[in-house]
Nucleic acid binder design. Sequence first.
DNA 1: GTAATCAGTTTCCTTTTGGTAACCAGTTAC
DNA 2: GTAACTGGTTACCAAAAGGAAACTGATTAC
Lengths: 123, 123
Amino acid sequence: MKKEHKACMSALLPVRDTLDVIGGKWKILILISIWEGNKHFREIERSIPKLSTKVLSKELKDMQANQLITRTVLNGFPVRTEYKPTAHSKTLKKVILELQDWGIKHRKQIFGDTSETDHSIRV
Amino acid sequence: MKKEHKACMSALLPVRDTLDVIGGKWKILILISIWEGNKHFREIERSIPKLSTKVLSKELKDMQANQLITRTVLNGFPVRTEYKPTAHSKTLKKVILELQDWGIKHRKQIFGDTSETDHSIRV
DNA sequence: GTAATCAGTTTCCTTTTGGTAACCAGTTAC
DNA sequence: GTAACTGGTTACCAAAAGGAAACTGATTAC
């Protein structure tokens, strides 16, 4: 009797999509920074230590393409850009909380860590 | 008045942990393959097209370290190894479903895709 | 003029990740 | 003997991601 090897992999396309949108080192950090109210390029950059201009620039473009943020150029003196979170971006909060929950449980599983540090996301 | 730039980043460590565990191109596929009942190295390898021996070997080690699977060597003739999912790994199903849900919504948001393809994960 | 701020882009380099293919050890079947 | 299967490891490359620093262009303040 042959094994079946059911694929089910088509169901994983949306999972991959999501990981592409929020995966990587910086995307969630940048999103949270913007959720917190940081609007301008340099402001966001300075709010996240070790984040380089180049990477921020690229990530912001990705996030714009994914409709997580909007970009508005304000015609002013030292030209300002305004990044704002979209309603669509807010739907990610549930996902992020789920990732956070599992991460906490996982830590306990691996390290038997029972410390009750504050892990809440305040965004 | 100075901006606050609340960090909240410590809350993101568990999120990063989770993304490290399930992120990457192959981890979820391998996990699902094992959930489906594939037990042996070559069996898992063959169940996932384009997956190389080297990468599978590395990913299985990671997943073992993260206690998602167990590895048992059966002393037999063409030496067989058995990989089995742990109870801990099953707790990831909820997370994966959440990622999948958001991915589907995201696709609709971006492409206005209203097709009702079967996206259920049967694992 | 100089210096500084904004919002990035460009160039170069290093690190990480992934892929290909050969190889090893052990056993079975021919 | 050879070939084929098991479960991997090793060496070598290619591509992608990430980081540091210089630079552009516009404007304001001095």
